Amino acid sequence: MNENKRGVFSAIDKVIGGFEKYVSVSCLGIIAVIVPVQVFFRYVLQRGILWANELVTILLVLVVMLGSALAFREKCHTDIQGFVNRAPKPLRITVRIMTNLITLAFLAVILFSSIVHVKGLGAAKTAVLKIPWSICYLAITLGAVLMIYEFLKVMKERILEEPAEE
């Protein structure tokens, strides 16, 4: 039974990781196409594409939030391990616990604030695309949830890992 739960969790985790990668890369690809086209239209044809700026902004927020969660998954976020690794083991673990708790608290604040902000937007819509702002800002909520999930997965490892030998 325990192995079955682990297999289900592993499958769900794989889907989440795939979602983070696929959506981040797709949004970045769309941005990479839209921005040069918008520049061409604006400066060469002297006619901007009205919806391009709104869409790029929305996609950029999505890329940042999902990319941050993906960075936790891939252990790519920067930290102060150079200083911490030189400290004695009890101090090293204490500092890591504190920094991990501060990070988790920060992510919780982002999550809570984004929920409050989304609720406060009401029926407001974007100027050109007419997409509800609440849907656009849900990218922040989704990103915060995914970052907390990814962070909790590696938190124990981040606290207990031993520094590499030099």
Results as ranks from 00 to 15, higher is better:
residue 133 W to S: 11
residue 61 V to D: 04
residue 103 T to D: 04
residue 48 G to A: 07
residue 139 A to N: 15
residue 58 I to N: 07
residue 32 A to I: 07
residue 124 A to D: 08
residue 162 E to M: 05
residue 63 V to N: 11
residue 25 V to H: 11
residue 102 I to R: 06
residue 99 T to I: 12
residue 109 V to C: 04
residue 10 S to H: 11
residue 81 Q to G: 13
residue 155 M to T: 12
residue 166 E to V: 08
residue 130 K to V: 05
residue 115 I to L: 10
residue 60 L to G: 09
residue 138 L to E: 01
residue 6 R to E: 02
residue 81 Q to C: 05
residue 10 S to I: 15
residue 114 S to I: 04
residue 88 P to H: 09
residue 151 F to E: 09
residue 91 L to Y: 13
residue 127 A to C: 09
residue 1 M to H: 10
residue 73 R to Q: 11
residue 141 T to V: 14
residue 91 L to W: 10
residue 153 K to A: 03
residue 101 L to F: 14
residue 157 E to M: 15
residue 83 F to K: 08
residue 11 A to C: 08
residue 141 T to I: 11
residue 23 V to L: 02
residue 89 K to Y: 01
residue 157 E to P: 01
residue 46 Q to M: 15
residue 21 K to M: 04
residue 132 P to R: 14
residue 53 N to T: 12
residue 100 N to Y: 05
residue 124 A to L: 14
residue 116 V to R: 13
residue 20 E to L: 08
residue 45 L to H: 02
residue 90 P to D: 07
residue 75 K to W: 13
residue 98 M to E: 01
residue 143 G to S: 13
residue 91 L to H: 08
residue 66 L to P: 08
residue 5 K to M: 04
residue 163 P to Q: 03
residue 120 G to K: 01
residue 56 V to T: 09
residue 25 V to R: 13
residue 116 V to I: 12
residue 63 V to D: 11
residue 68 S to K: 08
residue 118 V to H: 07
residue 32 A to P: 04
residue 63 V to A: 10
residue 2 N to E: 05
residue 2 N to A: 11
residue 35 V to N: 14
residue 133 W to Y: 14
residue 62 L to Y: 05
residue 32 A to Q: 09
residue 19 F to R: 04
residue 15 V to G: 10
residue 57 T to L: 04
residue 88 P to G: 09
residue 166 E to K: 14
residue 6 R to I: 15
residue 90 P to K: 09
residue 141 T to H: 05
residue 15 V to E: 12
residue 96 R to C: 13
residue 126 T to Y: 12
residue 65 M to I: 09
residue 121 L to H: 00
residue 11 A to M: 15
residue 46 Q to S: 14
residue 65 M to V: 06
residue 111 L to Q: 05
residue 66 L to G: 01
residue 52 A to E: 01
residue 104 L to M: 11
residue 83 F to R: 06
residue 116 V to Y: 04
residue 136 C to M: 01
residue 107 L to W: 01
residue 123 A to D: 07
residue 15 V to F: 03
residue 58 I to G: 07
residue 4 N to R: 06
residue 109 V to P: 11
residue 127 A to R: 00
residue 118 V to N: 06
residue 81 Q to V: 00
residue 64 V to S: 00
residue 22 Y to Q: 07
residue 100 N to L: 04
residue 42 R to K: 10
residue 59 L to H: 12
residue 165 E to T: 10
